[in-house]
Amino acid sequence: MSDTAIQKNQSASTTPERMEQQTYYTPLVDILEKDDSFVFKADLPGVRPEDVDIRYENGVMTLSAQAQPRQSPGTNYIWREYGVGPFYRQFILSVPIDPNGINAELKNGELTLSVPKAESAKTHKIPIKST
Protein backbone atom coordinates (compact mmCIF):
# COMPACT_ATOMS: atom_id res chain seq x y z
CA MET A 1 0.00 0.00 0.00
CA SER A 2 1.40 3.37 -0.92
CA ASP A 3 -0.09 6.42 0.70
CA THR A 4 -0.39 9.77 -0.97
CA ALA A 5 -1.69 12.85 0.78
CA ILE A 6 -3.11 15.24 -1.80
CA GLN A 7 -2.56 18.89 -1.13
CA LYS A 8 -3.59 21.78 -3.25
CA ASN A 9 -1.24 23.03 -5.97
CA GLN A 10 1.21 20.22 -5.49
CA SER A 11 2.43 18.24 -8.45
CA ALA A 12 4.66 15.27 -9.13
CA SER A 13 6.10 15.51 -12.60
CA THR A 14 6.55 12.78 -15.15
CA THR A 15 9.65 12.63 -17.31
CA PRO A 16 8.62 11.98 -20.88
CA GLU A 17 10.93 11.53 -23.84
CA ARG A 18 11.51 14.60 -26.02
CA MET A 19 11.76 14.20 -29.78
CA GLU A 20 11.26 16.64 -32.63
CA GLN A 21 9.93 19.34 -30.29
CA GLN A 22 7.10 17.05 -29.25
CA THR A 23 6.63 14.93 -26.15
CA TYR A 24 6.44 11.17 -26.65
CA TYR A 25 5.91 8.44 -24.10
CA THR A 26 7.65 5.07 -24.26
CA PRO A 27 5.14 2.24 -23.89
CA LEU A 28 6.17 -0.69 -21.71
CA VAL A 29 6.37 -3.95 -23.65
CA ASP A 30 6.74 -7.67 -23.15
CA ILE A 31 8.37 -9.56 -26.05
CA LEU A 32 7.94 -13.30 -26.34
CA GLU A 33 9.85 -15.35 -28.91
CA LYS A 34 8.32 -18.57 -30.14
CA ASP A 35 9.69 -21.05 -32.68
CA ASP A 36 7.79 -19.44 -35.57
CA SER A 37 6.83 -15.98 -34.34
CA PHE A 38 7.29 -13.09 -31.92
CA VAL A 39 4.48 -11.82 -29.69
CA PHE A 40 4.73 -8.16 -28.62
CA LYS A 41 2.43 -6.91 -25.87
CA ALA A 42 2.42 -3.18 -25.23
CA ASP A 43 0.56 -1.11 -22.64
CA LEU A 44 -1.26 1.71 -24.44
CA PRO A 45 -3.78 3.10 -21.93
CA GLY A 46 -6.33 5.52 -23.37
CA VAL A 47 -5.62 4.54 -26.99
CA ARG A 48 -8.38 3.54 -29.46
CA PRO A 49 -7.64 0.99 -32.23
CA GLU A 50 -7.92 3.67 -34.93
CA ASP A 51 -5.17 5.70 -33.21
CA VAL A 52 -2.50 3.00 -33.54
CA ASP A 53 0.05 2.98 -36.37
CA ILE A 54 2.44 0.05 -36.86
CA ARG A 55 5.09 0.05 -39.61
CA TYR A 56 7.85 -2.32 -40.60
CA GLU A 57 10.73 -1.29 -42.82
CA ASN A 58 14.27 -2.64 -43.26
CA GLY A 59 14.23 -4.69 -40.09
CA VAL A 60 12.79 -1.92 -37.93
CA MET A 61 9.27 -2.07 -36.53
CA THR A 62 7.83 1.26 -35.45
CA LEU A 63 4.90 1.52 -33.07
CA SER A 64 3.19 4.86 -32.68
CA ALA A 65 -0.14 5.64 -31.09
CA GLN A 66 -2.12 8.74 -30.20
CA ALA A 67 -3.76 8.87 -26.79
CA GLN A 68 -6.60 11.38 -27.08
CA PRO A 69 -6.64 14.04 -24.36
CA ARG A 70 -9.09 13.00 -21.67
CA GLN A 71 -9.46 16.33 -19.88
CA SER A 72 -10.05 19.77 -21.29
CA PRO A 73 -7.05 22.15 -21.37
CA GLY A 74 -8.39 24.30 -18.51
CA THR A 75 -8.61 21.40 -16.05
CA ASN A 76 -7.73 22.29 -12.48
CA TYR A 77 -5.19 19.58 -11.61
CA ILE A 78 -4.26 19.21 -7.98
CA TRP A 79 -1.91 16.23 -8.38
CA ARG A 80 -0.24 14.86 -11.52
CA GLU A 81 1.89 11.74 -11.77
CA TYR A 82 1.76 11.12 -15.49
CA GLY A 83 1.20 12.93 -18.74
CA VAL A 84 -1.03 11.93 -21.63
CA GLY A 85 0.22 12.14 -25.20
CA PRO A 86 1.50 10.14 -28.14
CA PHE A 87 3.30 6.82 -27.61
CA TYR A 88 6.34 5.95 -29.73
CA ARG A 89 8.81 3.08 -29.78
CA GLN A 90 11.01 1.36 -32.37
CA PHE A 91 12.24 -2.22 -32.36
CA ILE A 92 15.18 -3.58 -34.36
CA LEU A 93 14.36 -7.13 -35.36
CA SER A 94 17.53 -9.09 -35.98
CA VAL A 95 15.48 -12.02 -37.28
CA PRO A 96 13.77 -11.77 -40.70
CA ILE A 97 9.97 -11.63 -40.36
CA ASP A 98 6.95 -11.90 -42.62
CA PRO A 99 5.51 -8.35 -42.56
CA ASN A 100 2.31 -9.40 -44.36
CA GLY A 101 1.49 -11.81 -41.56
CA ILE A 102 1.64 -9.25 -38.71
CA ASN A 103 -1.58 -9.27 -36.71
CA ALA A 104 -2.51 -6.51 -34.26
CA GLU A 105 -5.24 -6.42 -31.63
CA LEU A 106 -6.06 -3.78 -29.01
CA LYS A 107 -8.15 -4.50 -25.93
CA ASN A 108 -8.48 -2.61 -22.62
CA GLY A 109 -5.46 -0.48 -23.51
CA GLU A 110 -3.31 -3.54 -24.17
CA LEU A 111 -1.89 -4.10 -27.68
CA THR A 112 -1.01 -7.60 -28.86
CA LEU A 113 1.16 -7.89 -31.97
CA SER A 114 1.78 -11.28 -33.52
CA VAL A 115 4.80 -11.12 -35.79
CA PRO A 116 5.49 -14.32 -37.75
CA LYS A 117 9.11 -15.09 -38.57
CA ALA A 118 10.09 -15.45 -42.21
CA GLU A 119 10.19 -19.07 -43.40
CA SER A 120 14.00 -19.02 -43.39
CA ALA A 121 14.13 -17.95 -39.72
CA LYS A 122 11.73 -20.51 -38.30
CA THR A 123 13.09 -23.28 -36.14
CA HIS A 124 13.33 -26.49 -38.12
CA LYS A 125 13.50 -29.75 -36.29
CA ILE A 126 15.79 -32.18 -38.08
CA PRO A 127 14.63 -35.77 -37.99
CA ILE A 128 17.41 -38.23 -37.18
CA LYS A 129 17.42 -41.45 -39.10
CA SER A 130 18.69 -44.58 -37.49
CA THR A 131 20.69 -46.88 -39.69
Partner: peptide, 27 residues
Protein backbone atom coordinates in the same frame (compact mmCIF):
# COMPACT_ATOMS: atom_id res chain seq x y z
CA UNK B 1 -2.46 -10.76 -14.00
CA UNK B 2 -0.45 -11.22 -17.17
CA UNK B 3 -0.87 -14.89 -18.02
CA UNK B 4 2.27 -16.71 -19.12
CA UNK B 5 2.13 -17.60 -22.80
CA UNK B 6 3.05 -21.20 -23.30
CA UNK B 7 5.71 -22.27 -25.72
CA UNK B 8 8.10 -19.36 -25.88
CA UNK B 9 10.95 -17.47 -24.30
CA UNK B 10 10.49 -13.94 -22.91
CA UNK B 11 13.06 -11.58 -24.47
CA UNK B 12 11.72 -8.62 -22.53
CA UNK B 13 9.26 -8.21 -19.66
CA UNK B 14 8.62 -4.62 -18.67
CA UNK B 15 4.94 -4.54 -17.88
CA UNK B 16 4.18 -4.58 -14.17
CA UNK B 17 1.86 -7.20 -12.74
CA UNK B 18 0.57 -8.39 -9.41
CA UNK B 19 -1.38 -6.70 -6.64
CA UNK B 20 -1.52 -2.93 -6.41
CA UNK B 21 -3.00 -0.46 -3.97
CA UNK B 22 -3.01 3.33 -3.75
CA UNK B 23 -4.48 5.33 -0.90
CA UNK B 24 -5.16 9.00 -1.55
CA UNK B 25 -6.05 11.46 1.16
CA UNK B 26 -8.09 14.36 -0.17
CA UNK B 27 -8.18 17.80 1.45
Amino acid sequence: NIPDEPGGVYRRRERPQGKFSRRLTMP
